[in-house]
Design a protein around this nucleic acid. Structure first.
Lengths: 247, 247
DNA sequence: CCGTCACATTGACACACATCAAATCGGAGC
DNA sequence: GCTCCGATTTGATGTGTGTCAATGTGACGG
């Protein structure tokens, strides 16, 4: 049976949280096929999931927690190139190694699929391949949006942009996306934020303090953040887009 | 007939130069199908191919010349997020609009496919979809490599990195990739280089002059560049990778 | 309760790059 | 040839962020 793929839904596989994965809600055999090659892995905060250059024999998606993709130069300068939040996909079908370090910044659970059989299934199941293309295009959009942040925004705007991204993803998960205020935990240290933003941790700290002083955000402890007015924060981020990916 | 797709070659379609496109060398019907929906478009230097936000009813690849993808903030700051060289793919199958301005920086020729039928074909022809995924992953890698450049490299390293990328792509095209020296034309103005690198045009100019003064590059006119020692340039770029995408 | 340790904040100062301004170059048109 | 005009170079100065260093904070274990 050839699934038509017209209704792509988000919650297909039975991971602990029913997260967005690679295929449509459908009752066809590839679901079972995927179930056969599926397994879960857990990592503790700080653990490296894959080292840059290493072979990576699985693809998968993040079920819970936060992980990062980063590149490091010989002299130690590092740049984060991706932030993995729950439901995000990791892996490069058709490629062997990983060009990035994948590091868990909190305890995480990943839902993995063995790569070889996964790739085989892609070849025979068009709409899985298409879902993957879909997700890769999303990642590409995110990467390019981040290029604008890195290349043209000020430190303050960078911080605001990061808070927007994390806050919105977090609240979308908790289904109160309509609200014009936010509350969430920062899953990153100041250093990790700096690596994502192309700044130093001191600059990050200073700008977070400044945003706090001016009431754009409220800090409860070092990591819990309240955003009383999301529009204000987005303005600080210099964001024209509502964050809605235009299709 | 289901093509196996085992030998993916680069030069499938009969564009003026036989450039890398979206499918394998294969004798199956989708080639003819593609031929039917294929057409060419030319643009002059400076012309805008697609405006950000506009509908884009085709996908395609660049046959000759150079084009850029860029994003602009309300206040006019712009960041180039992609550089399109001959054989590069443009378009977002499954999406309607373009989130970027696509601008020709030299006269260009594009090989286009009408989007609707192209997408229809993707659904029925697995290995075309896979080739597309392949290319999108390449773009993603390029975008992420550029994030490192934007976030962590100095102005001098940025310039060197850009020269490496353009020079290598150019020489790869002319099949003398083995050579440790390069000669090529810069297809970008100083301003366009600045927009790519997250710098101002003055800084670009100063750093180019510095590299010239120190013999890393030789300028013939404003745009023609000689690189006597590619290794030296790559060292200046702070590049650990040999530019070979690790697979 | 107190030391320890990682994480974060704050301050003083330096420097790379931006900004503003002027001069020079080089090709197109006449 | 000459003029014009955008592209580029070069100079003087300002500023945002990096660097180095000291201090503060909170969680954890003895």
């Amino acid at each position: 049976m050839q699934p038509s793929g017209e209704t792509i839904t988000q919650d297909c596989f039975d991971c602990p949280i029913r997260h967005r994965a690679v295929c449509a809600r459908c009752e066809t055999e590839e679901l079972n096929l995927l179930e056969e090659i599926k397994y879960y892995r857990s990592f503790e905060a700080g653990q490296t999931v894959v080292w840059s250059g290493d072979k990576m024999d699985f693809v998968g998606s993040l079920v819970s927690g936060v992980a990062t993709l980063s590149q490091t130069m010989e002299d130690g300068r590092t740049q984060m190139v991706g932030l993995l939040l729950p439901s995000d996909f990791v892996g490069r079908p058709g490629r062997i190694g990983s060009p990035y370090d994948v590091i868990a910044t909190t305890d995480i659970v990943m839902c993995c699929f063995r790569k070889k059989p996964f790739e085989a299934m892609m070849q025979t199941t068009p709409h899985v391949a298409q879902r993957l293309l879909e997700m890769t295009l999303d990642e590409l959009d995110a990467a390019r949006e981040w290029m604008l942040v890195l290349g043209r925004k000020t430190a303050r705007e960078k911080i605001a942009s990061l808070l927007c991204i994390i806050g919105r993803r977090d609240s979308a998960l908790r289904m109160n996306a309509r609200s014009r205020s936010l509350a969430f935990d920062l899953p990153l240290t100041r250093e990790a934020m700096a690596d994502y933003l192309g700044l130093t941790l001191e600059t990050v700290s200073r700008q977070v303090s400044a945003l706090k002083r001016e009431g754009v955000i409220v800090l409860q402890g070092k990591r819990h953040i309240l955003v009383p007015d999301l529009d204000r924060l987005m303005e600080e981020a210099g964001d024209d887009s509502d964050g809605g990916l235009l299709v």
